[in-house]
Design a protein around this nucleic acid. Structure first.
Length: 424
DNA sequence: TCTGGGGTCCTAGGACCC
DNA sequence: TCTGGGGTCCTAGGACCC
C-alpha cells in the first residue's frame, strides 16, 4: 500500500492589520493604508496601494512623513484587541474545513488536507470565499505536499494576483520553474545569515537549494537547513501541530512613550509589565521559578548607552502577582544606575511549568491560599471591567511611560462602549 | 522630537560527575 | 617527564519566524 500522500494548505490573511481596519472603515478601500507598531514607531502593515507608492516594511514613520502626507495615506496605531479578536474569528471558520488546524501566527494557519479532498483548487476557493463572507477578511491560500512548499505556493498566490487567491503547487508541471523564481531568502527557514552563505556558494533560488547535497547543507546550516532541503523535495518533515503546547517563556516589554530617568517612573512601568506578564502566565495556568528583568536606554540616541538584565531564581515556583512584583523590584534595584535616559524595560518569565505539580519549598513563608484568593479577585474584576481597573499601588497612577497611540481605532468588537455606530 | 514586540528551536561549550 | 575520557545537563547565544 502506498503511504498516504501529505497535503497542506497555508491560509494567510492579506495585509491582515490593514484589512481589519478597512473592514470597519470601508471608505478606505482602494486607498493607501498603513498600521504602525507600538508607540507609533514603525510601519508594520501596508495595503497594496501603500506598497505601490514605495512604503517599505519596518521603516520608522517619522522618516517618511512627507511621503505619507503627499499620498494622503490613512495611518492607524496598532490595535491588538481588534486584530486578536478578528483573528480568532478567522481561525474558527478555518477549523470547519479540516480536522487538523495549526494556528501558526495571528494571521496564518496550516490546514492538514491529507486524504481529504481531490479538487484542491475548488476546496481552497471555497475556504477563501467563506472567510471573506463571514469575517470580512481576504485571504490567500497555498497548497502543497509540505509546509515549506505551501509557504511558497502562498507567495505565488499573493504575487500573481490570481483571481482565485489560491495556488496549488501539488502536481504542478511548472514546479521547477516556480522554485527557480523564489530567491533563497524568501524560503521559510532561510534568513539573512543563511541566505548570505548560500549566495556566496552560487545557490540562489529554491530550485538550487532543493538540488543541494543535504549532507553539505547539514554541515553548514544545521539540521534545520537539511530539513528545508527535504521539504523542498516534497518530503514532509513538519506535520501540522494542532495541539499547541503552553508557552515556555512569557515576555512583556515596551518602549516608553518618552525617555524616563527617575527610578520611581521606571519602577512603575516595569512592575506594570510584571503584572501583565503574571496575568498571561495565570491565563495559561503555568507557574515559574525564574524571572529576568531588563532595562535599556535608547539605542538610536547619541548619549551614553546602558543595557542590562538581572535574573532571579525564586524560592518557590509561583504565578502570584505580588511575588512577581516583589522580585521584579529586587532585580530593578540592582539594575538601576542614575544618570541614564531609559527608553525600554521588560520582564521575561522563564521555565514555565504547569500549575498544580508545584514543588513546595521547605521554608515557604508565603500564605499561598490567601494570595490565591486576592489574585483571583483581581483577575475576575479586571476581566470584567477592563485591564488595569484594579492595580497594585506600586504601579502608580501617572503612567509616565504611556505609549504613544495617536491614531488608534476603536475596539469595535471587544468593548461595548466602542461598538460601531451606524446612522441610518 | 519620533526607530515594535513576542516567540521557537538548535548548538556549542562549560560544569559536573564517575 | 608523563596530567583521562566519556557521559549528561544546563545555559547563552545564534538563527529563524510572525
Amino acid at each position: 500500500m502506498l503511504p498516504k500522500k501529505n497535503l497542506f494548505a497555508l491560509v494567510d490573511c492579506n495585509n491582515f492589520y490593514v484589512s481589519c481596519e478597512r473592514f470597519f472603515s470601508p471608505k478606505l478601500e482602494g486607498k493607501p493604508v498603513v498600521v504602525l507598531s507600538n508607540n507609533d514607531g514603525c510601519i508594520i502593515a501596508r495595503s497594496e496601494e501603500a506598497k505601490q507608492i514605495g512604503i517599505k516594511m519596518g521603516v520608522p514613520a517619522f522618516e517618511i512623513t512627507s511621503l505619507l502626507e503627499k499620498n494622503d495615506v490613512a495611518i492607524f496605531s496598532t490595535n491588538y484587541a481588534l486584530y486578536g479578536d478578528l483573528s480568532q474569528r478567522v481561525m474558527s471558520v478555518l477549523s470547519q474545513f479540516t480536522p487538523s488546524l495549526e494556528i501558526y501566527s495571528i494571521d496564518e494557519a496550516f490546514l492538514d488536507l491529507s486524504g481529504l479532498i481531490t479538487n484542491t483548487t475548488k476546496y481552497g476557493t471555497e475556504i477563501a470565499k467563506t472567510v471573506k463572507q463571514w469575517v470580512g477578511i481576504p485571504v490567500s491560500i497555498g497548497i502543497a505536499p509540505t509546509k515549506t512548499l505551501a509557504k511558497i505556493a502562498n507567495h505565488v498566490a499573493k504575487n500573481e494576483k490570481l483571481s482565485t487567491q489560491v495556488y496549488d503547487l501539488n502536481n504542478e508541471d511548472k514546479f521547477n520553474t516556480v522554485l527557480e523564481s523564489v530567491p533563497v531568502l524568501n524560503i521559510w527557514g532561510i534568513g539573512e545569515a543563511y541566505a548570505g552563505f548560500l549566495y556566496k556558494h552560487g545557490i540562489n533560488n529554491a530550485n538550487d537549494l532543493k538540488n543541494c547535497n543535504e549532507k553539505w547543507i547539514r554541515k553548514h546550516l544545521g539540521v534545520v537547513g537539511e530539513r528545508t532541503v527535504f521539504e523542498l523535495r516534497g518530503v514532509s518533515c513538519y506535520p501540522v501541530d494542532n495541539n499547541p503546547q503552553e508557552k515556555k517563556d512569557i515576555c512583556f516589554s515596551r518602549s516608553y512613550g518618552k525617555v524616563l530617568e527617575k527610578y520611581d517612573d521606571i519602577e512603575q512601568a516595569t512592575t506594570s509589565f510584571a503584572v501583565y506578564a503574571a496575568e498571561k502566565m495565570r491565563h495559561q495556568k503555568s507557574v515559574a521559578s525564574a524571572i529576568t528583568v531588563f532595562v535599556m536606554t535608547n539605542r538610536f540616541a547619541k548619549g551614553p548607552q546602558y543595557v542590562n538584565g538581572v535574573t532571579i531564581n525564586m524560592p518557590v515556583a509561583t504565578n502570584h502577582t505580588s511575588e512577581i512584583i516583589h522580585y521584579t523590584v529586587i532585580a530593578l534595584k540592582k539594575l538601576y544606575r542614575k544618570g541614564y535616559k531609559y527608553k525600554k524595560s521588560g520582564i521575561i518569565i522563564k521555565d514555565l511549568q504547569p500549575e498544580g505539580q508545584l514543588q513546595c519549598a521547605l521554608w515557604d513563608e508565603q500564605d499561598r491560599e490567601r494570595q490565591q484568593k486576592i489574585t483571583s479577585i483581581i483577575d475576575a474584576t479586571n476581566a470584567k471591567m477592563g485591564r488595569g481597573k484594579l492595580k497594585y499601588a506600586i504601579q502608580g497612577s501617572k503612567r509616565s511611560w504611556k505609549l504613544r497611540q495617536e491614531k488608534l481605532s476603536p475596539k469595535y468588537t471587544t468593548n461595548w462602549d466602542e461598538l460601531l455606530d451606524i446612522k441610518i
